[in-house]
Amino acid sequence: MDLYLKGKTAVVTGASKGMGRAIAKELAREGVKVFATGRNEELLSSLKDEIIESGGPEPIIFAQDFVASNGPDDIASNAFSKLSNIDILINNAGRTRPLDVDGPDDEWKEAMTLDFDRHRQLTQRFLPHFIGRKQGSILNIISTYELRSVNASAVAKASITVWAKQLAGQLGAHNIRVNCIQPGLIDTDNIRPLFAGEERKSFASREIPLGDFGDPQDIANMAVFMVSQRARYITGTVAVVDGGMRHFPF
């Protein structure tokens, strides 16, 4: 299926590994010029090499601490200096942050900064550009709603869901779509330490109808569709990729 993405451009945060890396590579396979940003320059360089070797457009890499106060400004200014136009923004950066029920304020502030504030700020840097061009697709990688213990990152990501729905309502008139992907348990560095040894197999057989954790490529497949013209009438929604783990019907 032609997704009509060849020649488009995309900014992907948290692209050095895991889901962000898989998304960047899949976009490149579709002919998208990717601006990949993350903290680890070595991993970003290897991502660049892999994309070039696979025949995709040479990506632009930019190592930047997203949490730094100037992070969104630096990413946006660098992206605009390297790309004449930007079509797609994928807000992916983040990390799980389980806390006790009385978790300290500094941990909560750090989680809200990384997993909500910086995404909002970066998006706002790109909105005038999208609005001026009367086009754009914004995709946020969020988190599950069904945790049974406190995780500050999941709370922040739930805030992104509400904010994205609000943005979608206002930006549709400018032909800008805003959506979210809700991953289930995906085999990444964030998740592996939480399910050591046989616990992964035990949990998956008990809780996931498809029987195992997902792969970053599963998220990439959905992400590339969601930002493509094939999804032109989809906005303000949350696409779930979790192997059937979610329990609630709506």
Rank of each mutant, 00 (worst) to 15 (best):
R200E: 14
G94K: 00
Q182E: 09
D102H: 14
Q229H: 12
L210R: 08
F225P: 01
N179H: 02
L44K: 02
I23R: 01
E146K: 02
A168S: 15
D65A: 09
D189G: 03
K134T: 02
G14R: 04
E199R: 12
F116I: 14
R120F: 13
Q64M: 07
G55W: 00
I142M: 13
R21G: 07
D49M: 11
S137I: 08
Y233M: 15
L122M: 08
L167V: 10
D105W: 08
G136C: 08
L122K: 01
L167C: 10
F66S: 05
R39G: 09
R206Q: 15
L185E: 09
G7E: 03
E198A: 14
R21S: 10
S228P: 07
L99I: 06
Q124K: 10
R118M: 10
L89R: 00
I138F: 06
S137Q: 06
K201H: 07
A10H: 03
S54K: 06
S46V: 11
G214W: 00
K48W: 11
P249W: 12
A164F: 05
V241D: 00
G20A: 13
L47A: 02
A154H: 00
P183I: 00
A79M: 07
A22W: 00
N175S: 02
I60W: 00
G7K: 03
D212R: 15
G236F: 00
V32I: 03
T37L: 12
G244L: 06
R148V: 14
F80P: 01
E207F: 01
S69Y: 14
R192W: 06
N40E: 15
P72S: 12
N140P: 05
A76D: 08
K6N: 10
A111M: 09
S46N: 11
L99Y: 00
V238G: 03
C180P: 03
I234N: 04
I131P: 01
L171I: 05
G197S: 09
F130R: 06
N151G: 05
T144K: 06
S202D: 14
F195A: 04
E110P: 05
F250D: 09
F62E: 04
S46Y: 06
F250G: 10
S228W: 01
P59F: 11
S137N: 15
G132Y: 04
F62H: 03
D74W: 07
M222K: 01
F130T: 11
V34P: 02
I234C: 07
G18T: 04
H174V: 15
D117V: 05
H119T: 08
F195M: 05
D215E: 06
T37H: 08
G38W: 09
P249K: 13
D218M: 04
A28C: 13
K201T: 11
L194V: 03
K6D: 10
I191T: 07
D73E: 11
A63R: 04
V34M: 09
I160E: 07
D106W: 15
P193L: 12
K82F: 10
